[in-house]
Amino acid sequence: MDVLKTIVQYIKENHPEAGLPEADGICYKVDSDSRRKLGYSRSVYSGGGWDISIGRPVTPEKVYNVKAEYDNGDIVWVGRVINGKVEEKSYENNSCR
């Protein structure tokens, strides 16, 4: 998924200390809770201790809501990708990294 690569690249460039693995080391999982909900669907990706949740509201703009979380919240990155452009909303690192 292109947006996953975009996000991973952004976090690796702007927060290298977070130690996010490469995108091809992060695997796709279906989020069964959001499947077939009207207006929104979500994919969850996992790898290297990270969970990356990518939500897609059904809107005419290509918008993705992203939450990347390491080790159940030790590092949390929240942001949005709109038409390919990454907007970081928050970044919190409480780990030793």
Binding site: D24, Y28, V30, S32
Partner: peptide, 23 residues
Amino acid sequence: NIDAASACDYPVMRITQQEKALQ
């Protein structure tokens, strides 16, 4: 070794036919 290039070879969680049918 989930950081390896072949990390995504392990079985991914898929919604089952039964769950879809239920919805």
